[in-house]
Design a binder for these strands. Sequence first.
DNA 1: CGATTTCGGTACCGATCGGTACCATCTTGG
DNA 2: CCAAGATGGTACCGATCGGTACCGAAATCG
Lengths: 180, 180
Amino acid sequence: MPTRARDRLLQAADELFYEEGINGVGLERLLTHSGVGRASLYRHFDGKDDLVSAVLERRDEHWRQWLRERVEALGGAPLAVFDALAEGARDSAFRGCAFINAMAEMAKEPGSAVHRLAVEHKRKVADYVRGLIEDAGHTGAPELAEQFTLLMDGAVVTAMSERSVEPFRRARQMAERLLS
Amino acid sequence: MPTRARDRLLQAADELFYEEGINGVGLERLLTHSGVGRASLYRHFDGKDDLVSAVLERRDEHWRQWLRERVEALGGAPLAVFDALAEGARDSAFRGCAFINAMAEMAKEPGSAVHRLAVEHKRKVADYVRGLIEDAGHTGAPELAEQFTLLMDGAVVTAMSERSVEPFRRARQMAERLLS
DNA sequence: CGATTTCGGTACCGATCGGTACCATCTTGG
DNA sequence: CCAAGATGGTACCGATCGGTACCGAAATCG
């Protein structure tokens, strides 16, 4: 396999960026925390911006896979997404949505790579939720999926500030109403 | 009056922090954009962190006053908050909620000044919304207010990424359901 | 095994960070 | 009118930023 250093770097960057923000983590911290040499970073990435994009792409894949697994384990119903999110928010390292956070601290222009990756992530999540709603046999799945994702984002942001899983219960109740 | 430089500095910092993020604006930019001397900053504030706190306190006051005025102009019904937010999001300078953004880029510890100010802001907004719901004669105002603020935050975050006011319409529809 | 590549580590670079000290100027109140 | 204080501007500080060049060691592979 091509690289071992690349994966360690992505793993370390993913953790540190999520914990302390992208702008809050310098290259030095990245290198010491990953045990990777300075030059190796530039062998695998064009620079920090490129590393940031790679980290977000990786996190998108991992996070959506995690969501699929948890939702399936919880029965596969559309409303299970809120229970899954609540589980994730119980983690002491929970700090909200990495894509919302990245957009919040980077987005000067809506055309930046970070903003584009965040929008793509949200769209993919919405597509997945729409699939869940369709599989459950509900009508108006596209509109319902948009409402679900709005509730999910609202709950995640509220949970980040309140440090509680209660917002996911509230969001789930509202979502339940939409299905009836 | 004590200071003219202080107000200019707060005004400039408020604009620049919101547009480019707190960590994305250095003191140099602050000083040139406000026309304030370097020493004046440290005469009125203990440092950048103190300035950030002052900016957030000021924005909390201004923003909630703006919301009250717009809601009143729109009739004063609870659902009007979503119409007011949509109006605000039409501004080309709209970049989401300054407190969510600040929390997203600063919050390592939930005990930081920024996090505390953001939580206080959200609580004050929730209290205001609860008052609107009570005035409209609905039962269960506290729970409804929590649901409303979750919808508001979800809509603001979605609007920031999608660059659209459509999320406010969706959120309003869901809120309407809660009142029936 | 030897050759090639990838590796971790270090020394640098210019730029900018937040912060301090000291100006000359301008406003302002007694 | 004149002293006291606030102001804008500049020079400077150590630290850190992202990024480049180069090294010897280690792993990889033919």
